[in-house]
Design a protein around this nucleic acid. Sequence first.
DNA 1: GACTATGATGCAACTCAATTGCATTTGTGG
DNA 2: CCACAAATGCAATTGAGTTGCATCATAGTC
Lengths: 149, 149
Amino acid sequence: MAARHPTSYRPVTPVRDLLARSGARITPARETVLAILLEAPRALSHLEVEQAARQRGLTADRVTLYRVLDWLVGQGLAHRIEGQDRVRRFNAEAAVEHAHAHFHCTRCGQVFCLEQPLPRHKPQLPEGFRFEGMELTIRGLCPTCSTQT
Amino acid sequence: MAARHPTSYRPVTPVRDLLARSGARITPARETVLAILLEAPRALSHLEVEQAARQRGLTADRVTLYRVLDWLVGQGLAHRIEGQDRVRRFNAEAAVEHAHAHFHCTRCGQVFCLEQPLPRHKPQLPEGFRFEGMELTIRGLCPTCSTQT
DNA sequence: GACTATGATGCAACTCAATTGCATTTGTGG
DNA sequence: CCACAAATGCAATTGAGTTGCATCATAGTC
């Protein structure tokens, strides 16, 4: 997988810099996982992260990856998406405001980030409800699956 | 819990009628579960359905309830909502078009149906994606939880 | 460069919703 | 009332995610 902004005039912020900002420790697991998420074209499940990590030579426990992912979410470096299949997926959009919809393929289960932003305004809620955030998930078939009959 | 349209000029369609339309068998489990969903003010998890069913004197296996719920969804009699907590919740909106947002309380986990409809139009999708449906989930605190500090 | 405290990791066991296979029961059309 | 397809019950299983605790490694300090 290629880096995100190969032709950008501004260099990609190195993974270690992003991590360093948190003040917490920089560990191989955190470096690798964040790099994986940053380079992924779509949201990855824990399992996909684990496989990608192994390909990069990281031998980390399943639990460690869960904890790293949670930590990244806590740091605001990654975002967690609740899938239609009871599987959580993660992506990292270091620079991009995370306010877009997700597309969940009902056939292969992949989750894609869509470019179009969510409505800017907070939705009207009935009396007493407090808003924290919102998530728009579109179900359907991805390009690959929609052509396979 | 009261029936849905107490003042409507049109009588509420009896549960058995709704079931009969499917052409499939009418069983105690299906009757009870559908009645529970129709009368519930919010989406219910499998566990909540099970407890409600027991209160009504239905002694059905957990698995049966799972299967009944799936079947109701397949028949279009119920709708499945994917929670932020990896728990599926169900509601039945026999007459109402199901195109509204859901509110998920991040504290108590309850899911409420919001009145405001989703945007009518199908969202623009990148080339190749096929639209099937969408789900808008708003996270936050419900009235009860938002007052408990 | 070595030392150390604190926070990260590994391991094993566990939780919990949901699913599956198969034998048994039951609703319904004939 | 009968037969058969469909629904149910039961037990075992899956799979994502979590927890407790012992061990290890990072980053600041000397």
